[in-house]
Amino acid sequence: MNAVSASNVSKIYMQGDVKVTALNKVSLEVAPGEFVALAGPSGSGKTTLLNLIGGLDEPDGGKISVNGKDFANMSSGDLAELRLSQIGFVFQSYNLIPVFTAEENVEYILQLQGEGKAERKKKARAMLDDVGLEGKYDRKPAQLSGGQQQRVAVARALVSNPTLILADEPTANLDSVTGESLLRTMREMNQKHGVTFIFSTHDSMVMNAAKRLVSMKDGAIVDDKVK
């Protein structure tokens, strides 16, 4: 069973009265444990495809399934449940909850899953340690650097043991050293936990790190290489 299966997926947006085809009959299969980069210039449809795979948006045509679950048959509540239990998100601008500490940001998702207090604290700290944030548990996002915030976002995405992580340009706001370090962390997570990663990026460093590079242009996949 594929981790992700997208078949003939289309998405059209309206910009005023003009129809913009963000995705045009895109098909993509991703196997469990893959480390995939979606590459392409701005407007090529990378983020749209990630959003559709994450169930954050609905396609106008085609079918999407994650771990064999077809989105067409799922309600918004079911999709929220699927995201909570099986999908982790890492966003370009981190999107941490500003009033929570690093530990609480990571812990919160475990609470949504119904995990007990002691257990979620233990898991959150362990995950922050794994991404290199030992001792920074009590810092709020504003007290962390961009790289550190993105690590917290990665820890948050991973702590709930998802099978799939969707990362939308995770290194875009980071300097090259921090970006490389984060990438290494994610690669380690991929290898250690067997989690499937799909990135959108136009950063050559991320493209080089990916084990599979899917190139997109004008809402279509133009190349798909396994390294």
């Binding site: 918004s76 995201r83 999107n95 949504l112």
Partner: peptide, 15 residues
Amino acid sequence: REFGLLKAIGMKPAW
């Protein structure tokens, strides 16, 4: 944006 994020990570509307 934060509410969008919360929904993205699996928070249900009722929550």
